[in-house]
């Protein structure tokens, strides 16, 4: 009697429908024979029901329980909300009602993802660790406490602290960026130390860091191994993302490789991209990204990363 063919392993990709990086990841998974389910919880709960009970996690009338792996490319829930739309697009006549709705929704979506992981789905990366990415200063502090080189950093709403930090690092310069992400790094200039400008810190505190010179490497780590890296020229730019066109594959030396794998392990991530500045004094970790973009980097980098990630999500070794 002929046996029925084994069904394709099902893997979820959690991302907005128009996310081009998710397209790259999904295409690699499909090439490897996976059935890819694109998930996005934006319609929950107004237009799509999410249900979690002791036996299953269901989106609409479909079970998510059989997912072999789940790649978390973007999260659209958190509390407090990371996006204005998290609150604005909820049902409710008043802002207070929509705020409460957002809180309740975030709780159920987070539980659903955690439960999938408990039920055996390889979640890359677990949602709580992805959400910690919005605490950029805390990440730098964690890595510093683990003995890994990070830029001297300051998060503050105190104009005096900014002036003192600027004076202390005048030789190299100081950059600043949002503490929770979502913005480019910029160079702190003497004009920024103006009283009126610094008073804007009363509206929102800011992350300041010593500027680290040198080319920037983006080092991809999957399941504890460095799988590929690209070098970005940082001449004439503050934020390396302004020079993505310069990205070229680079062979990772042992020191940098160990730095990255240690950092990724310390943060409890299965997959991450480390941004490392190759300063004259050695590599310095700017940031570890738990849900990184991939499409800006050369094809050999994309291929190596997506192949390793696909193996991880399908349950193999990287």
């Amino acid at each position: 009697m002929p046996s029925s063919p084994e069904p394709s392993p099902r893997v979820g990709v959690l991302a907005p429908p128009n996310d081009p990086d998710a397209d790259v990841y999904a295409a690699a998974l499909e090439r490897a024979g996976a059935e890819v389910v694109r998930l996005w919880f934006r319609a929950v709960p107004e237009r799509l029901a999410l249900t979690v009970d002791l036996d299953d996690v269901r989106l609409g009338d479909r079970s998510l329980g059989g997912l072999r792996g789940l790649l978390v490319r973007k999260l659209y829930f958190s509390f407090p909300p990371a996006h204005l739309a998290d609150v604005e697009e909820r049902n409710g006549r008043t802002l207070r009602a929509r705020f409460v709705a957002a809180r309740e929704r975030a709780s159920l979506v987070r539980t659903a993802l955690l439960e999938l992981e408990r039920r055996g789905t390889t979640v890359v990366n677990p949602p709580d660790r992805v959400l910690r990415h919005t605490e950029k200063l805390d990440q730098a502090m964690q890595l510093h406490r683990a003995g890994l080189p990070v830029p001297p950093s300051l998060g503050t709403s105190d104009p005096g602290a900014v002036r003192a930090f600027f004076a202390a690092h005048q030789d190299a310069g100081v950059i600043y960026k949002p503490l929770s992400g979502g913005g480019q790094a910029a160079l702190l200039t003497p004009a920024d130390l103006d009283e009126v400008r610094l008073a804007q810190l009363q509206n929102a505190p800011v992350l300041f860091q010593r500027r680290i010179p040198g080319p920037e490497w983006r080092v991809y780590v999957v399941n504890g191994h460095v799988v590929a890296a690209a070098e970005l020229d940082t001449t004439d730019v503050i934020d390396a993302r302004d020079n993505l066109a310069s990205a070229t594959p680079v062979a990772v030396d042992e020191t940098t490789g160990q730095l990255c794998t240690k950092a990724v392990a310390h943060l409890g991530l299965l997959y991450a991209a480390c941004d490392v500045r190759q300063s004259p004094d050695g590599p310095v970790l700017l940031e570890v990204n738990p849900a990184p973009a991939i499409r800006f980097y050369p094809a050999p980098v994309q291929d190596a990363v997506t192949a390793a990630l696909t193996r991880l999500l399908l349950g193999g070794a990287a």
Binding site: Y176, K177, P178, G182, G183, Q184, R197, Q200, Q202, N203
Partner: peptide, 13 residues
């Protein structure tokens, strides 16, 4: 609340 100039120090926000 104290009065501060409008806007964010990080202009990208």
């Amino acid at each position: 609340l104290p009065t501060a100039p409008d806007g964010f120090f990080c202009r990208s926000l």
